[in-house]
Write a protein that binds this DNA or RNA. Structure first.
Lengths: 230, 230
DNA sequence: ATCAGTGTTGACCAACTGGTCAAGATTTAT
DNA sequence: ATAAATCTTGACCAGTTGGTCAACACTGAT
């Protein structure tokens, strides 16, 4: 971290409280912001952008509304921050395509990760869905740039698999849509699924079962080699 | 038109205006209600329940807000009416399971119908999705009664196919979820799909292509007999 | 003509919303 | 200690919302 321990010790020790104080301040700020962001994610996902009120979010975070507006000047800024978070998480998961040249490996891994995200970040998924359903008033630029590029490059990869005879000739685009819709369904429609599950959230083994079924049907559905259709 | 012209002419002529006036009144009422309902469906699907304002709906229907409240006393009543509509449409489509004993026929037909609905009633699908994502505050009873019964009975049918070896042993529940999610995705995420389609809605042939791909992957995915996996 | 029932609407209101602000509390640096 | 910087918050405001209402218009029956 610091290159020269001896000479700059004083400097360091003098800086250390500074760092501490900074980190404390930053810590307070970071902590509060995190509280608010978590509360906001929950509220936005449950009520949508319009349905959510800054008062609800403030209550959820345990701070007065005025304090929320100290950290996040407007409701829209808060919302954007959350959208950014979600999108970066999704993009991270999408690297499975690059790390595996084998379609079975690549798709299995991708589906696994997307299912995991649906379980660990259901709020984010729902906020995204809400945004799209409202015509993406805030994230339209994402759709037209990052998402479009990502999609096209993965379509090319899938088409490559088809050309090499590794999977059946399906339309790569619709294969992607299927993976997106199915995996996100377990987050977006969790309430419906839970209700049909007797009112209880899926257990870990039930999640595993869901994941296996999704992978089985999709991989078999595209005739991916290495998968036995029993 | 009128059976006995001579004798009851007076009676008929006295009733006819009555019927006319009734049908005219009813016609006015029906027409206005329909206008408002259609506008409301659009607005609710785009902005969600909270985001939608009665003013927007009134504007969309081309009536003053006060007139809207003459026909529908509250925003919630209007919303319920629309939810009812959607649910009945979906239930109608779901009869494919009863009309076909062959899994390929039954599932193909069901998927076809659900895709058709996604194209013809995208607003309704989005409103449903919105409701579920908000924890189904209004339609929880539907989920726990009608939908649960419907789901269980179709699960039994699918399990029957498995027992008879007509399809692979998959979890019927997750097969249903997959069909629901994929087909509804084309309505709920239409904006995203359109954007990735160059900003234009899918053409009729593109819809057909989507439908074929969905059916192909799912039917092949469950090893439904009678489907060649080329 | 007149009356009753139905439909129409501008003006209005109480409740709520996102956001502000000034005054004070707390922490850090000197 | 004290000054500077950051954080906290009750009270407040202007704009918007769902819903009301009284006055008016229209239609058809007598």
């Amino acid at each position: 971290m610091s290159g020269n321990e001896t000479i700059q010790k004083s400097t360091i020790s003098s800086t250390e409280p500074d760092i501490q104080s900074n980190s404390l301040k930053a810590g307070i700020r970071q902590k509060k912001e995190l509280q608010i962001l978590e509360a906001a994610e929950k509220v936005f996902s449950e009520f949508g952008y319009h349905g959510a009120t800054t008062q609800m979010i403030a209550d959820g975070a345990g701070v007065p509304k005025a304090n929320l507006h100290y950290y996040f000047p407007t409701k829209l800024v808060l919302y954007r921050r959350i959208i950014d978070q979600i999108f970066s998480i999704w993009l991270d998961a999408a690297q499975s395509f690059d790390e595996n040249s084998d379609p079975v490996q690549a798709l299995s891994s991708y589906i696994d990760k997307k299912m995991q995200i649906s379980r660990s970040h259901p709020h984010g998924s729902r906020i995204w869905a809400n945004e799209i359903m409202q015509g993406a008033p805030i994230i339209q630029d994402y759709l037209e740039t990052t998402l479009r590029e990502w999609t096209n490059s993965r379509i090319a990869i899938i088409q490559g698999w088809i050309d090499r005879g590794l999977i059946d000739p399906v339309d790569p685009r619709h294969l992607l849509y299927m993976i997106w819709s199915v995996t996100q369904h377990y987050a977006d429609f969790a309430h419906q699924i839970d209700t049909l599950n007797g009112g209880k959230p899926l257990s870990t083994s039930q999640w595993g079962n869901a994941c296996e079924n999704v992978k089985k049907i999709i991989l078999a559905g595209i005739g991916a080699k290495g998968v036995d259709i029993k």
